[in-house]
Design a protein around this nucleic acid. Structure first.
Lengths: 193, 193
DNA sequence: TTAATTTTTGACTGATTAGTATAGTATTGA
DNA sequence: TCAATACTATACTAATCAGTCAAAAATTAA
């Protein structure tokens, strides 16, 4: 294994790519945009990542891994997973304007690409299913511990929360407003506790 | 008023533009795509509509007007507005694959353009607020007539339904499946009746 | 020191982009 | 008949697009 070493950290520059893909979407992000944001050379981008599409795919992958870690971490900070889930959603309502406007990277990608690229659509879908499965895990746990008000099927409850997530990431662009978002989320979560 | 009359019906060709904008989004739709779908000439497009952006704006306007009519019509077919709202959502779950994949034209636009174009974002938002107001109207009516289970504020309930709408139009791309979508929708609507 | 290997660099490609320009045709009301 | 208007057709622009290429630079193993 010889050869000139990479001067950039791969994960670091993918995270910069994520930033711009997340804000502007796939189509509206040019390779030129990516290059200046990632601070690498055109040749390096194609040498290391292959194509714009492959870079996007890797962005979805990395973002999926890291964001799900953060989300599960937040939920786990409370003994009662229902409180964890509740706080996860409530916290999001007091984000800043730019964060509201970005919405969910996976939801955005699903919305933009579901008629344009089956592979990327499927990647975004899989990452959202992982989120659903986190909800499922903690809903199930709460149910076992008798912390759940409703007796509804856990899988359906998990998808209900997933749908809340998908919805709020559109709605928060209409209403980047703490009170409005909180009132919707609280009503939605009232089924749980 | 002299001059050669239009040989195409403006509303008709905007509807064709809507089709392609709705499926592919704003950025991924080229003027070439629009021209062949609308079956008009490049010159005519710019003469009549000004620019791609203006055509998109007019597409949002026309779609907003027509779709809200159809939605209100569906809800109104039942004496009990709650049944109307319920059926409106339940019906959507048995749509075909392509329909699921298209999602909501306004939601798609909000997702794609909220960081790219404030005017178009605002137009999409306004149209979704019109939908919220339809929900509000019929929720209020049901409340007056004692047909509503919950005593929750009507505006919040309307936004709760708007958020269901926004969410299900992402979730239906993940699960273009009648049973899955119905189970989510039914659970979500159980608060109403 | 040298050969092998890998990354960096920036110029380059051909295709496509949104939008314009021009000239000709069709249709109307005055 | 004529001025006004609107559509067709096509050629054109300048900018931007994603992606390629060959040569230089940096590193390691022999």
């Amino acid at each position: 294994m010889a050869g000139r070493p990479k001067i950039f950290n791969e994960e670091e520059v993918i995270n910069k790519a994520i930033n711009i893909f997340w804000s502007n979407g796939y189509e509206a992000t040019s390779t030129e945009n990516l290059l200046s944001e990632m601070e690498i050379n055109r040749g390096s981008l194609y040498h290391c990542f292959g194509s714009k599409k492959e870079l996007f795919a890797k962005s979805l992958d990395l973002f999926g891994i890291n964001s799900i870690k953060m989300i599960e971490q937040k939920i786990k900070t409370y003994d009662n997973p229902i409180i964890g889930i509740k706080n996860f959603f409530i916290e999001l309502s007091s984000a800043d304007y730019d964060t509201h406007n970005k919405g969910c990277f996976m939801g955005n990608s699903l919305s933009e690409l579901s008629n344009l690229d089956d592979e990327l659509k499927s990647k975004a879908t899989k990452n959202l299913v992982v989120l659903e499965n986190v909800f499922f895990k903690y809903i199930s746990k709460a149910k076992e511990d008798g912390q759940l008000l409703t007796n509804e099927d856990s899988r359906i409850l998990a998808r209900y929360l997933l749908n809340l997530w998908n919805g709020i990431n559109i709605t928060r662009r209409m209403y980047p407003n703490k009170e409005v978002l909180e009132s919707i989320i609280k009503l939605q979560l009232s089924i749980l506790y």
